[in-house]
């Protein structure tokens, strides 16, 4: 690496966030988990929460959260992260508590736990990464898999008559009284990444101000299991995925008025 650049341009305007451990990730090339991790670490740094945070990792590609985010982390059974986070938050209300979950984890096996955590207004923050497949186990059909999408367990494409429809969690959770904030973001363009960061900040603020349950759903990519190049995977997010899973803020509580 050349040092010439550093000599001429002395102000570092972009570097790895402090809360992101300086290691190479295990994620596949182009996987957006890395972007979501970075946004999470940047937001922890922004609010100065690194030493007051307890994270809860899910089962799936995101389980190695504890290798990357420099905070205390508990590992939850598949889908149970919001329940584990509930136990942590009730025991330590002064700590910042978040879960980081994939779509198989949150939207299939963990629907009960996330719905009831939201409905209780559990003062936790959920980062939900939706890539329409079970990535770690080899690209099986998820509850979020798009109609017609071929996966290793829907080799003829998802058929609504057999498998039902892709589940829209951000909308569903926004209907619950205990939810303070629910948004869906994507990270496939620089502008989307900036918006995603704003959403995560908002979700953090909800917990800091004790407003209740907050969730940010990320439309993510899985180039490996989709059988696409990373740039084509991003185009899929911008196209059919964003059409079915519209981006936006579905609920934002303005003040802590629990009815």
């Amino acid at each position: 690496m050349t040092d010439r650049g550093k000599d001429r341009f002395t102000k570092k305007v972009y570097a790895r966030p402090k809360s992101l451990v300086d290691v190479k990730s295990h994620f596949c090339p182009g996987c957006h988990h890395g972007i979501a991790h970075r946004i999470l670490a940047e937001t922890i740094d922004h609010f100065g929460l690194r030493e007051q945070t307890v994270g809860v990792a899910c089962v799936g590609c995101a389980v190695f959260l504890y290798d990357y985010i420099d905070v205390d982390v508990a590992e939850a059974p598949h889908g149970r992260a919001p329940a584990v986070a509930t136990g942590v938050k009730r025991a330590q209300p002064d700590k910042f508590v978040f879960t980081y979950q994939g779509d198989g984890d949150l939207a299939a096996i963990g629907t009960s736990e996330v719905i009831h955590a939201a409905n209780r207004g559990e003062n936790i923050t959920v980062l939900f990464v939706n890539n329409t497949t079970y990535g770690m186990t080899g690209g099986q059909m998820a509850p979020t898999t798009m109609l017609g999408q071929k996966t290793s367990t829907s080799p003829y494409g998802r058929d609504f008559r057999k498998d039902g429809y892709p589940i829209k969690m951000a909308e569903l959770l926004a209907t619950l009284e205990g939810t303070a904030y629910s948004a869906r973001v994507a990270t496939s363009t620089p502008a989307q990444i900036r918006k995603a960061k704003e959403a995560v900040k908002k979700a953090f603020e909800m917990q800091i101000k004790e407003m209740g349950f907050s969730i940010v759903e990320f439309l993510s990519t899985c180039p490996t299991n989709w059988g696409m190049k990373p740039l084509d995977a991003q185009k899929r997010v911008l196209g059919e995925m964003s059409e079915y899973f519209p981006l936006g803020v579905y609920k934002e509580r303005k003040q802590a008025d629990f009815l």
Partner: peptide
Amino acid sequence: ATINFILGTSA
């Protein structure tokens, strides 16, 4: 959910 609340509080 109960046993996972327990897990979180124990942790």
